[in-house]
Design a protein around this nucleic acid. Sequence first.
DNA 1: AGGATCCATAACCAGGAAGTTATGGATAAA
DNA 2: TTTATCCATAACTTCCTGGTTATGGATCCT
Lengths: 107, 107
Amino acid sequence: MAPAPDLLFRTLADPTRRAIFERLCREGEQTVGALTATSGVSQPAVSKHLGALKQAGLVRDRHEGRQTHYSAQPGALDPLIDWTSQMASFWQRRLDALDDLLKRMDQ
Amino acid sequence: MAPAPDLLFRTLADPTRRAIFERLCREGEQTVGALTATSGVSQPAVSKHLGALKQAGLVRDRHEGRQTHYSAQPGALDPLIDWTSQMASFWQRRLDALDDLLKRMDQ
DNA sequence: AGGATCCATAACCAGGAAGTTATGGATAAA
DNA sequence: TTTATCCATAACTTCCTGGTTATGGATCCT
């Protein structure tokens, strides 16, 4: 299977980083400066988080003059959705099996 | 909003721990010994991971004699699903807005 | 009862990760 | 051409976490 969820989980595990990503999802494209203003950490810290998010494919960057605009990358969460639904399907299947068993015992 | 996804992301970020959880989802209830056998780490390490998973509400434990059986807790992933779909809805809404804008510009 | 097995906890260690300050390169403004 | 702003990178520090071994309590077997 794809080792894809791993990087996503690791990247989204940090609250500060996840907050940055959430804000990009909510409000769309933002500059580093704008993100720094509300993040509660220093500008270099924000830059590092953005680097991590970018490496995980969660954001895109666009350079414009001396500022860099970052935006959330929609499809990037798909592996996460796939993983959760797969886990869900696993225990669903096991519930079905249990159901079957009970039915067979019933007759 | 609920700070719920935080603990989930942090707990599932570790590959070893996530592997244990995946196995419990796939194969159902398992003893600590059985989980240790295939985890690649020591028994105390497995016990600690199971403790973390339990604290996050991802697993349940059931004591039977001298062994402890662990099983995945289905609904525990719901906050994760909620979070992802919320993020998805955010950029969906923004795409809709863009669509509207383009339509207005068109006429 | 005595020995073996299963698991959890304690104590400790090492690596990584998130934060900081310092700095420099590139672009905009004066 | 200076000067100021924006961002990224480097260097360093601190702390958390995942791993280990050692140990002990509880239960099962002989």
